[in-house]
Design a protein around this nucleic acid. Structure first.
Length: 231
RNA sequence: UGGCUAAGUUGGUCA
């Protein structure tokens, strides 16, 4: 079953959900029962492929099959709903999950926070992060990265800097993804100098530029005519 | 005992 699950996840991540479902059918035919991980893997694959409705239909089947939802199931579905822009449904599901005795964890909260950010409700996202703290889950570096990205996307550099300062204060370290968000937002605001300073800082802190960093650097430097620096 | 599942970042193309 672990072998099957690994293959199913591989197919899903390669965007081949149809084949993944075929493989599940074969498992069943071979008398191999599906476990929660098999289902969760499929839910994630379906959600990423934009088939939330199919994922929700499959939940019903899973329950009939005698398998109950766990925190990963809820988090996966909540994330899928958020990414589909169905924020309200995502929050309803989060409430349902609580009613069923599960408490949202940092991942669940992060998905909801990202969902709010993506529809531009960054103040609400920030409030949810506070609620998350009160609920005993400290925002982690991913949660912070989500917020920072959300803030930069709507041009709220004030909130961005405030949060970065807060992170420094709590000795949280900026990771590569967060650096990349910040760097590309500086470029988008035509703050080329600050972007480059940040790249230098990032390197000094032991964080190595990756393909995202380079793509952003090269694209923006070329755009402002600094082809030589890009090279 | 362990091994499989959930969250954030860039550029391009087309509408």
């Amino acid at each position: 079953i672990i072998t099957y699950n690994t293959l199913i996840d591989g197919l899903c991540k390669a965007g081949r959900v149809g084949e993944a479902i075929g493989l599940v059918a074969k498992m069943v035919k071979d008398g191999c029962s599906l476990n929660i991980i098999t289902y969760n893997t499929l839910f994630n694959g379906l959600c990423k492929a934009g088939s939330i409705d199919e994922a929700l239909e499959l939940v019903a089947k899973m329950v009939q099959d005698g398998c109950s939802l766990d925190i990963i199931t809820y988090s996966t579905l909540i994330d899928g709903l958020c990414k589909a822009g169905k924020i309200n449904t995502a929050f309803s599901l989060a409430n349902k999950m609580i009613k069923n005795g599960f408490s949202p964890n940092a991942v669940t909260y992060s998905s909801l926070i990202d969902g709010l950010c993506k529809v531009g409700k960054v103040e609400e996202a920030l409030r949810l992060a506070d609620k998350m703290k009160q609920d005993g889950h400290s925002p982690n570096y991913i949660t912070y990265g989500i917020l920072i990205h959300g803030f930069t996307q709507v041009g709220r550099m004030d909130l961005t800097f405030k949060l970065v300062a807060q992170m420094m204060h709590s000795r949280s370290v900026l990771d590569i993804v967060t650096y990349n968000s910040l760097i590309s937002s500086f470029f988008k605001e035509s703050r080329v100098r600050e972007a480059l300073i940040l790249v230098a800082k990032m390197i000094k802190s032991g964080c190595h530029p990756d393909i995202f960093t380079y793509n952003s650097l090269i694209a923006h430097l070329c755009k402002v005519g600094k082809v030589d620096e890009a090279l």
